[in-house]
């Protein structure tokens, strides 16, 4: 799904999920590792604002990935 959206629309697609090898296998080019499988963009173990702060950090990282020129599949860990 990731690959075909990028392929057809010709726009950068960043995938946030937890199992990096699967994202590499399905052909995602911009990859941001998520928190956990059942809550990739949040951490409910942290109360209230902590959960939201994690989400914001990951989305800012995703936006950075969208702005970054890459030549090959790239995992953005910071």
């Amino acid at each position: 799904m990731v690959r075909e959206i990028e392929n057809v629309a010709g726009i950068p697609v960043v995938q946030i999920a937890t199992i990096v090898p699967i994202m590499l296998t399905v052909g995602a080019n911009r990859i941001v590792p998520g928190v956990a499988i059942p809550h990739p963009v949040g951490d409910p173990t942290r109360e209230g604002e902590g959960d939201r702060a994690v989400r914001r950090q990951l989305l800012e990282r995703a936006l950075k990935a969208i702005m970054t020129p890459i030549e090959e599949q790239t995992v953005f860990t910071s």
Binding site: M1, I11, V13
Partner: peptide, 26 residues
């Protein structure tokens, strides 16, 4: 199926002038 979803979504986003996508998976 996943590829078809991607193609269809991609076509719509292209048509509507979307510039980038954030896709989350579990």
């Amino acid at each position: 199926h996943a590829e078809r979803f991607g193609r269809e979504i991609g076509e719509r986003l292209k048509r509507d002038g979307v510039d980038a996508v954030i896709l989350t998976s579990t």
